[in-house]
Design a protein around this nucleic acid. Sequence first.
DNA 1: GCGGCGGACTGATCTAGATCAGGACAAAGG
DNA 2: CCTTTGTCCTGATCTAGATCAGTCCGCCGC
Lengths: 226, 226
Amino acid sequence: MTDAELRVLDSLDKRRRTFVAGRDLVHQGQSNQAAYILMSGWACSYKLLADGQRQIVDFQIPGDFLGLRSVVLHISDHSIEPVTDIEVTEVHVSDLMEAFAQTPRLATAVFWAVSRDEAMVVEHLVGIGRRDAAERMAHFLLELCARLSLVGLGSKAGFACPLTQYLIADAVGLSSVHVNRVLRHLREQGFLTFRNGFVTIHDYDGLVRFADFEISYLDQIGPLLR
Amino acid sequence: MTDAELRVLDSLDKRRRTFVAGRDLVHQGQSNQAAYILMSGWACSYKLLADGQRQIVDFQIPGDFLGLRSVVLHISDHSIEPVTDIEVTEVHVSDLMEAFAQTPRLATAVFWAVSRDEAMVVEHLVGIGRRDAAERMAHFLLELCARLSLVGLGSKAGFACPLTQYLIADAVGLSSVHVNRVLRHLREQGFLTFRNGFVTIHDYDGLVRFADFEISYLDQIGPLLR
DNA sequence: GCGGCGGACTGATCTAGATCAGGACAAAGG
DNA sequence: CCTTTGTCCTGATCTAGATCAGTCCGCCGC
């Protein structure tokens, strides 16, 4: 980044806030003025249906934006719930727009973040639409692994994962009963073990092949930034 | 829009191109330099899995961007196939970036388009994950209806729809056999009729209730543009 | 005028995963 | 200490939707 860009970044009001696990920070239908950058902890964005079911769209890990789309669309089409206690820094729309105007390249960076977000949602869509339970589960965990590795919170050997089987069920579109069975299946196949909040991967390459996992949508650096 | 913005828009190289139905214009894995705006006809963006199955992520109708995300991420994570013969105008990355630098508000507009795109994909995800076949079908057709109405190609009474039941099956994650049965079901319930390339809606409000269709994610105008 | 083909449509059968109905265990709270 | 709560885990049964195996019809090319 150039000095000018860094100066603009520094000028942003960086108010830190914390939220406790389980208490939503953004509600579906709410129109909000601020987005956040997640500094520590995990969160999830989800949608509720009229009949009370919920679909978790994605989990957010440190470094991810929270509620960026809500700000652009002026209304939130989803809710965001901290999975663990979290720490965030607030980003005001006005500041963001200001920064865009001053340094277009910064706009491009955020643009890229939104696009990567969309690419992940698309990948989830494909998973739920076309992969069976085991492949979907494997793909889901591999994606988390890759994302966590990028921010230094995991490796191909495994990662700490605060998700309950209920949360995973809501994310991959299965019942929690079936999530449990699928995890057992993957363990019995020697692929991975998920126990006590830790995912241990025994056979990374086998898992990648099994899940047809294509990492490219995650690790690209926006070419427009080079 | 201001005069300055319009001048920038006019300065873009607006090369018209046409593509015939069925021949992909963007291939998964291809890195491309141009995005398009669809002027006439329908297209679809889809992903292929290793085992040959495909998931259609979304259909594009006149006015929609094609391949915008591919440009930002530098590589296309999906393919795009014209459903009918289509007409597009090409938009070069360099031009787009140039335009962004000159008029940040234009960047914001494109930003909004990407966000709306993502909101639609999220809605599809929820549909496939949590709605049963009939609700999903109803929701899918209502979304198309709403989008087509926005560009004057349909109304609450119905719209012309060039999609085959096979294409719909690939989009909503059902078998074509089941798509057929679900359409019959919706017809027998008096909700709508899909025949000879026309969707005729008999009971719009009933359908909206049945599908739990929430239109807000589509018709918002980006507040940042006001 | 007739084969070939793509799309709509249908009945019979099969299966992945849901749902139901619990038990085991650990942590939290009185 | 016992009770409650949350999470993991399991077997038995049920069902939405897939799959298989076609028919029918209109259109195109020869």
